[in-house]
Design a protein around this nucleic acid. Structure first.
Lengths: 252, 252
DNA sequence: CGTACGTTTGATCTTTCTCAATAATGGTGG
DNA sequence: CCACCATTATTGAGAAAGATCAAACGTACG
C-alpha cells in the first residue's frame, strides 16, 4: 500500500514518459490533493453513459475498459496497469463512452476535476504530457482494432500477450520473459473478440509450440523473439513521446 | 475548391465542436499559414513508421488511416472526412504508427509543425480543443474495436454506415437519410475486418431487408431508426465536448 | 468440505473465408 | 461517340476458423 507521499510518483513518472517536466512541475503533480481508496476485486469504477466528474490514478492492481453489447457480449478495450490514469477523457467530457472495472483488488488515487483542471490550465507542459498520454491511448486502441480485425486467433492472442508483457515490464512488474498475467481466459476472450473455449485451445497451441509456458497466473516466455514474430508485434506504437524526433530507438 | 481565406474555416468550426473559442482565438486559427494542395486519388500522405513533421486539414475529399499486416492484409482504422485533421498525433510524436491515404481526389491544407506548435503553446484553450479532438478520435477507435470484436457482419456493416452517415451529415455533406458513400466494397471490408465477398453479400442482405438502398455511390436510408437498431448504433461517442455537462441531449 | 469460479475436453454447427469465374461500370484514347 | 481496359461488383461451390453446447474436472476459499 503506497504511502500518501509516494502515491502520485507513479503518475509523475508516467507523465515523464511523454515529455520532460521541470522539478517544479513534478512537485505540482506530487502535491495534487487526492483520496486514496482500496477497491475489492471486480468493482466497477463507472459504467457506460454515466456522468463522470473525477478521474483516478491506478496505484496498484489492474483494471479494464470495456463496452457491453445489447446481446450481453462484452468487448474489453484496454487493460490498465499501475501508473495509468482511469477516466481522464470521461472526466473532461463529463460522461463516459465505456465502462471501467477493477480486476483484482486495487488501490486508486481519486483526483477531483477542479484541482486537476486548474493544474492543466496553468501549466501547458503538464497539459501536453496528459495530451500525449491520451495520444498513446489512441495508438494502443488502433493497434487493438487492427489486431482484432486482421489477425487470426493465434497471432491475436500472442500479440495481446506481447503488449501486456511490455507494458507490465514498463510498469516495473516483472520482465517480459516472465510476468503475472492478471486475466482469466474469459477476460482474454473479451480482449480479443474470441470465445473462452477458443482462447483455451489457442493457449494450448501456443504452449505446444513452446512459445509460452504457464503456471497459475505466471506466464513464461522462453524465447521473446519467437513470440514476437508469431504475434507480429512491433512495440513502436507504445512509445508516445519518449524520444520525439532524434536519438537511437530504444531496444525493443 | 476553397478560397484561401475560407480554407481554414472548416478547421475552426471542427475545433468549436470541442469547446468555445473567442473570436481572437478563431482569428488566430484562420490566419495560420498553410499550403493548399490538391492530391490525386489514392495518394499516400504518409506511411507507417515514417517520420512526420507536418499535419494537414482535409478541406475536400476523404482519406483513411490504416495499418498493413505482414501478410498483406490491411485494416482501415478510420475514415477521415472534410474538416478533420490528418497526422496531428504523428506530427506531435515525430513518427507515424499508421499510414494515411487519400481516397478520392482531395484538397488539403498543410500546416507546419512550428506555427501550429507556437499557437498551441501560447493558447491553452486552443490546445484543449485539439486535445478534445484526439479524445474524440480515441472514442471512435474504441467503438471500432468493439464493432469489429463483438458484432456479426450485418450489424457491423450497418454500424459503420450509421457512423459515416452521422459524420458526413455533421461535415455538411448530405443527410443521414441519403449520402454519398466514399468507399468501395473492398474498402468497406478493410474497415470491418471482413472480406470483400462477404461485404457484398452482407450489403445484399441489408438491401433485401430494406435497411438501405444504393444507387452507384449513393446510399439511401429509408428508415433511420430501423438501421440504427440493426446496427446497435448509439451516437453518443461521437459527441466529444459538444455540450460538456448540461443541456438537453441532441436528438440522435 | 462445499460451492463458485475457472479451465479443459468433445462433438457439432455456423459464419465467414477462399478460390475462381463472370458481369458491370467508369474512365480513356482514338 | 465508341471500343477497350481496369477496376469494382456479383455469383457459386467448397473449406476452414471459430462458435456453440454440454459436460467434466480443478482449485481456491469461505
Amino acid at each position: 500500500m503506497p504511502s500518501p507521499a509516494a502515491a502520485l510518483t507513479r503518475l509523475a513518472s508516467r507523465l515523464q514518459h511523454h515529455g520532460a517536466l521541470s522539478s517544479d512541475e513534478r512537485e505540482l503533480i506530487l502535491s495534487l490533493p487526492f483520496r486514496a481508496k482500496t477497491l475489492p476485486a471486480n468493482t466497477r469504477l463507472f459504467r457506460e453513459d454515466e456522468p463522470v466528474d473525477e478521474c483516478s490514478v491506478l496505484l496498484d492492481g489492474f483494471a479494464c475498459r470495456y463496452k457491453l453489447m445489447p446481446n450481453g457480449a462484452r468487448q474489453i478495450l484496454n487493460i490498465l496497469v499501475p501508473g495509468e490514469v482511469i477516466g481522464l477523457e470521461p472526466m473532461l467530457l463529463g460522461r463516459a463512452d465505456h465502462a471501467v472495472d477493477v480486476l483484482d483488488r486495487a488501490e486508486i488515487a481519486l483526483l477531483r476535476t477542479s484541482s486537476l483542471d486548474e493544474l492543466l490550465a496553468a501549466h501547458p507542459r503538464i497539459a501536453r504530457a496528459f495530451w500525449l498520454m491520451t495520444i498513446r491511448e489512441t495508438a494502443i486502441q488502433r493497434e487493438w482494432t487492427a489486431n482484432i480485425g486482421r489477425r487470426d486467433a493465434r497471432s491475436r492472442l500472442a500479440h495481446l500477450l506481447c503488449e501486456l508483457a511490455v507494458r507490465l515490464e514498463e510498469a516495473g512488474l516483472g520482465r517480459r520473459g516472465r510476468f503475472d498475467l492478471p486475466l482469466t481466459q474469459t477476460q482474454l476472450a473479451d480482449c480479443t473478440g474470441l470465445t473462452p473455449v477458443h482462447i483455451n485451445r489457442t493457449l494450448q497451441l501456443l504452449r505446444a509450440e513452446g512459445l509460452i509456458r504457464t503456471d497459475a497466473r505466471i506466464v513464461d516466455v522462453p524465447d521473446w523473439e519467437r513470440l514476437r514474430e508469431a504475434a507480429d508485434f512491433e512495440p513502436a506504437y507504445l512509445r508516445a513521446g519518449a524520444a520525439p524526433k532524434a536519438g537511437p530507438a530504444v531496444v525493443a
